[in-house]
């Protein structure tokens, strides 16, 4: 991070609470340090933020625009509001869009009970989806010896892309296609099992918020994620 920003100390208000922070911190990290929860989906501790899911949008006094808390740096005198009725409404509609996009069928899912999308829906009080489900017919790639990729459950948060490139350094994952046709792919859209760049480390499996990537041999509700990425990232920062 920017060293001049890091040496600045700024004060700001988040939901009326006075907070102190370094100039290179994001609204999200400062809020969490201060016990204020801002919901997130694409953010993952230890990976760079891309502001893609738009769940963490917050209001900043004096600006008509909304800001992604995960990728907006704090500034002096900023007044942030994280949970207005307007934001709650937007967050719910964004979740509805996500549920309508692909085939999220919790009852038969290996991640049932351990799914961040499911948990977010419960947390935000989303009881039903008002939009028609698109029911796309997407591929399931089970060519890898240990893992399965199921596009039907992917929310395109790009955590797998980032963890593979930034932590494992292999860059097996990337995104192909545009708009609603966008898909997470391995190598140059080859079967995962045929990938020569994949180290089978499993980091992508454990950062996936849903069960778009999961371990073979798990039954419904058995896919539990471990978190080790933020530790790895933090250790790396120390030795850098």
């Amino acid at each position: 991070m920017n060293s001049t920003l890091a040496s600045q100390i700024v004060t700001l208000k988040i939901d009326g609470k006075d907070c102190g922070a370094r100039g290179d911190e994001t609204i999200l990290s400062v809020a969490r340090e201060n016990g204020i929860d801002i919901p997130t989906l694409c953010h993952y501790d230890g990976l760079t933020d891309i502001g893609a899911c738009r769940i963490c949008l917050v209001e900043v006094k004096g600006s008509p625009k909304l800001f992604a808390a995960c990728s907006t740096l704090v500034t002096e005198g900023m007044e942030v509001s994280t949970n207005s009725p307007r934001l709650q409404r937007y967050r719910k509609t964004i979740l509805e869009l996500l549920f309508s996009e692909r085939n999220h069928v919790c009852a038969v899912c290996v991640s049932n009970g351990h799914c961040e999308l499911q948990a977010m829906a419960m947390k935000l009080g989303l009881t039903h989806v008002r939009l028609p489900y698109r029911y796309p017919n997407l591929k399931v790639d089970a060519t890898h010896t240990r893992y399965v990729q199921d596009d039907n459950r992917c929310i395109l948060c790009q955590r797998c892309v980032r963890v593979c490139a930034e932590i494992e350094g292999a860059h097996v994952w990337d995104i192909m296609g545009r708009g609603i046709e966008a898909r997470a792919i391995t190598d140059l859209n080859e079967p995962w099992g045929a990938s020569t760049s994949c180290t089978s480390c499993g980091k992508c499996v454990h950062v996936c918020p849903t069960a778009a990537i999961f371990e073979k041999g798990k039954s419904a509700g058995e896919m539990v994620k471990r978190s080790f990425v933020s530790e790895l990232a933090a250790k790396r920062e120390v030795y850098e």
Partner: peptide, 21 residues
């Protein structure tokens, strides 16, 4: 807009598709 959306953020990716429908 639906076909030119890059697909990175949810509102534009899914929203344009739903609006088009």
């Amino acid at each position: 807009c639906k076909s030119e959306s890059c697909g990175k953020c949810v509102p534009c990716r899914v929203g344009t598709s739903q609006m088009y429908d």
